[in-house]
Amino acid sequence: MTKRQLGLSIYPDHSNFEQDQKYLELGKKYGFSRIFMSMLEISESAAVTHNKFAKIINVANQLGYQTILDVSPSIFDRLQISYNDLSFFKDLQVAGIRLDQSFDGATEAMLTYNPYNLIIELNQSNNVAYLDNIISYQANKPFLYGCHNFYPQKGTGLPFDYFMACNRRFKKYGLHTAAFVSSNVAQMGPWKINDGLPTLEADRYLPISVQAKHLFASELIDDVIIGNAYASETELAKLAQLNKYQIEFNLQLLPNINPIEKTILFKPQHFRRGDVNTQVIRSTMPRVTYRSQTNPPHDNDIVFERGDVIIGNDDFKVYKNELQIVLQPHQDPRKNKVAHINSQELMLLDFIKPWSKFKFQKQ
């Protein structure tokens, strides 16, 4: 598995250097390591553009970021850059360029053999044979990445099924992938319309940490980038604390939870039993580890709802202290309700497959 990263976006044609520098320094504090930087809005000469972007890219490089510039064929024309000579971008000292629009396949493949080893990142939000065409021209795959679009207009983000179909095309070839989440406070993007900048429409108004969990849970996205600027320090901190490699559900604990149940919730490495059922997700090892620990009945005379976390009580005999997450409503007095998963994270239950690992954290 490719190491997963967190990224920021900045827009030098809409911001100022001091604000961008401060933002990148803050991101560095919280472990962010890549930058999406848009060039699509430039209106100045090649020399002025070069100097403006070089100044902030130099700061990014000193802080250890990997910077990828978003460009299009019109930008090549405006700056009088040839596809056969990427020295303009090499001189900017970026890690790569993202092609917001497509060429003819052969051109993209040739670009991956540029002498500067610049990453060539493709628009990943297309479920067509475009990528297959590029690969058929024997592209240099280690230098070929994918990155989704973001969608400033509400209602226009990708539906999840389409998003996954696009991802599978890229992962079929083992390519590095990225997608966007949206800050709930940031106002800056490439255009004047800014209803948030997520890739997935379903994520648009969710807390930023839930958006990121959603993308990482797909198992097909390597890098999660905040699309709009500037995210708050609180949001950066929440993403920094995120487990990028397994789902950690945010829990609301019940008042009557007892010490052994707290231990069962937060200490073990949970995984879903392989022989799955449709009623509950079963984490069965706690019943083995804590079989000698008593667990009196409480909060056990209710209908358990989807997202409830329940643990077998003393009346459940051999299943005492088994942890379960409810998928379908049911009643069973041999189980205690101990917590409920944050309602905004219930969609993440769909990603817990046979043998999937998962953890919990207190809200």
Rank of each mutant, 00 (worst) to 15 (best):
F160N: 02
I134H: 03
N127E: 15
Y145G: 00
K154D: 10
P142L: 08
T156Q: 15
I134S: 07
Q153L: 12
M164H: 02
N127T: 09
T177H: 06
F180G: 07
F170T: 01
C147I: 07
P142C: 08
K172H: 15
Y130N: 09
S183E: 07
F150Q: 00
L118P: 03
G189P: 05
H176Q: 13
H176K: 14
N140M: 01
N126A: 14
F163M: 11
N133H: 09
I119F: 11
Y162T: 11
Y130E: 08
V185F: 11
L175C: 02
L131E: 03
F150C: 00
T156G: 09
T156S: 15
N123F: 04
G155K: 04
A165G: 05
M164N: 09
L197R: 05
Y145V: 00
N123S: 06
A129P: 00
Q153C: 02
Y130R: 09
N194G: 05
K171A: 10
G174F: 04
R169F: 02
L175M: 05
G146N: 07
A139Y: 04
A178W: 05
F170E: 03
N127S: 13
P159E: 11
N140F: 02
H148I: 06
S183P: 07
N149P: 00
Q138I: 02
Y162R: 08
S182W: 06
D161L: 13
L197N: 09
S183M: 06
L197G: 08
S183V: 04
Y137P: 01
M164D: 08
N126K: 13
K192Q: 10
G157H: 04
I119R: 07
D161P: 03
N194L: 13
V185G: 00
Q187S: 14
K192N: 08
N184Y: 01
Y173A: 06
I134A: 06
C147M: 13
P159L: 06
F150I: 01
V185W: 04
G146E: 08
T177Q: 07
S125N: 11
T199H: 04
P190M: 13
C147N: 09
V185K: 12
I119N: 03
P190R: 06
T156A: 12
W191H: 11
L131M: 05
Y151H: 11
K154Q: 13
L175R: 01
V128R: 12
E121H: 03
K192L: 09
S125C: 08
G174W: 05
I193T: 14
Y130M: 08
L122K: 13
Q153Y: 06
V181Q: 01
L122V: 03
Q138L: 15
Q153P: 00
K141S: 03
V128W: 09
Q187R: 14
G174L: 07
K192Y: 10
N184T: 11
K172S: 08
P198M: 12
N127Y: 13
I193Q: 13
A139D: 09
L197M: 14
K171F: 10
H176P: 02
W191V: 10
S136P: 08
